[in-house]
Amino acid sequence: MEFTFDNNIPIYIQLLEYMKIYLISGTFKCGDKLPSVRDFASTFKVNPNTMQKALSELESMNLIYTERTNGKYVTKDQKLIDKLKDEYAMTLAKSYMQGMKRIGLGKADSIKYLERIDD
C-alpha cells in the first residue's frame, strides 16, 4: 500500500488516522504486538520522531499500551475498538450526508443511492 500525506495537515495527525484504520479493520487485533517505531516509520516513510508522536497519541487514547522493554501492544479491550469503529463510521456517514445536502438531496434519497451501490 502507498501512503500519501497532505503537507497542509500535521503529519502525525495523518499517521494517527492510518493507525486508527489499522485497528478498526483488524490489521492489528486486540492484544497484538505492534512493530517497532522504526519499522512503522519505514513502512510509512516518515520520520521516526513523528511516528513516535502518533503512537504516543494512540497510547493516551488507551488504544495501545507499552509493556516495559517488550514493546507496544494493541489494547485488550475490544469495546474501545468497537467504539472507535462506531465513531469513525459516523464521521464518514456525516461527511456523505453533507455532500448530498449540498446538491439538494435529503436522507431518504441518500439511502436510495447507497442501496444502488454494488458491494
Binding site: 503537507n7 497542509n8 495537515i9 500535521p10 503529519i11
Partner: peptide
C-alpha cells in the same frame, strides 16, 4: 514543522 503547519493551516 507540525506546530507550524497547525498554526498556519498550510504546508511548510
Amino acid at each position: 514543522a507540525d506546530a507550524l503547519r497547525n498554526k498556519e493551516k498550510s504546508s511548510i
